[in-house]
């Protein structure tokens, strides 16, 4: 039996996340919210808006731009920034390449996904950000299952999974030495399903590519990828038009599309409830090795 003072799990998750976001604003001098245009960072931005209402966001949004975006994501991003009266900072991977900070990967599977880490760390250093909030969730990947809400990074931006700070109750330790920073994950405890249900409950607008549409795609190793000027076909691969939608949004080069006719949030939720593959199952970046995510995270990835 439910008591009068019970909360639904979405309410409880929302209150927890708002608490964490407010802690960040209170404990750090120069926090920033990482915004990718994906649903998780959209939910994060929504939670941040609620946390400080009626004041504006007390921190800027930071988009690490690989230059390989779905156009719809950029349109959405700019509209959202305008609506919230927020500040947007863009860190450009193309610029990192031009400056010789990173070298573009070669070959048909080339992706700018890993290059983002350098751009991210450079941007954090340039603006002296001391806390970067991200939409990472513990249910996404096994290395993330052990991530703290407040995750300490040394002066090189590295994560040391074996030497993480204990984190108990809802007391968060954001103390650090100069040059170090924190990654904070306010929606750690949300699952993919929670995110979608929350989007439905709160009626949050999403970029159109999350819903079904016709697109030119090709199939590589069982994953549908979008046609784009910088994507190269291997022998035997060909473009075809399919009815697809995005289940997650990242860099075009590593975002697998789902064959789907789902046109509403309710239909998407129904699809996810029935699905038997995780959302990162379509992410080429995770399939590189058993510890691919752990390795990238140690270096300073999102």
């Amino acid at each position: 039996m439910k008591s009068k003072f019970s909360l639904t799990h979405l309410e409880e998750l929302e209150y927890e996340s708002i608490y964490v976001i407010r802690e960040v604003a209170a404990q750090f001098e120069r926090p920033v919210l990482l915004f990718s245009g994906g649903k998780d960072s959209i939910v994060m931005t929504h939670l941040a808006m609620k946390a400080f209402w009626p004041a504006r966001l007390p921190f800027p949004l930071l988009h690490i731009d690989t230059g390989h975006n779905f156009e719809e994501t950029l349109v959405y991003r700019d509209n959202l920034v305008k609506k919230l009266g927020a500040t947007l900072i863009v860190g450009s991977v193309q610029e990192s390449i031009n400056n010789g900070r990173v070298v573009e990967e070669k070959g048909v599977n080339a992706s700018r996904n890993i290059l983002q880490t350098t751009t991210l760390l450079d941007t954090i250093e340039k603006y002296k950000f001391d806390a970067a909030m991200g939409g990472g969730r513990r249910d996404e990947e096994k290395a993330r299952a052990k991530e703290r809400f407040f995750s300490h990074r040394d002066e090189f931006g590295q994560w040391d999974p074996k030497n993480q700070r204990p984190e108990l109750w809802n007391i968060f330790n954001g103390r650090k030495n100069p040059g170090e920073h924190f990654r904070v994950f306010p929606i750690s405890n949300w699952t993919e399903m929670d995110v979608w249900q929350y989007i439905l409950k709160e009626n949050i607008e999403l970029p159109s590519i999350y819903f079904t549409h016709q697109r030119e795609v090709f199939n590589r190793d069982g994953v549908w990828l979008a046609k784009a000027p910088f994507m190269k076909l291997k022998d035997g691969e060909k473009y075809e038009t399919r009815t697809v939608r995005c289940r997650t949004i990242g860099d075009i080069s590593c975002t697998g599309l789902t064959l789907s006719a789902a046109n509403s949030l309710e239909e998407i939720i129904g699809e996810i409830a029935a699905t038997r593959v995780t959302e990162r199952g379509g992410r080429a970046d995770d399939m590189r090795s058993e510890a691919a995510m752990e390795d990238r995270k140690k270096e300073g990835y999102f």
Partner: peptide
């Protein structure tokens, strides 16, 4: 509807 009424 059921999902929105779940506890944690």
């Amino acid at each position: 509807k059921g999902y929105l009424d779940m506890e944690l």
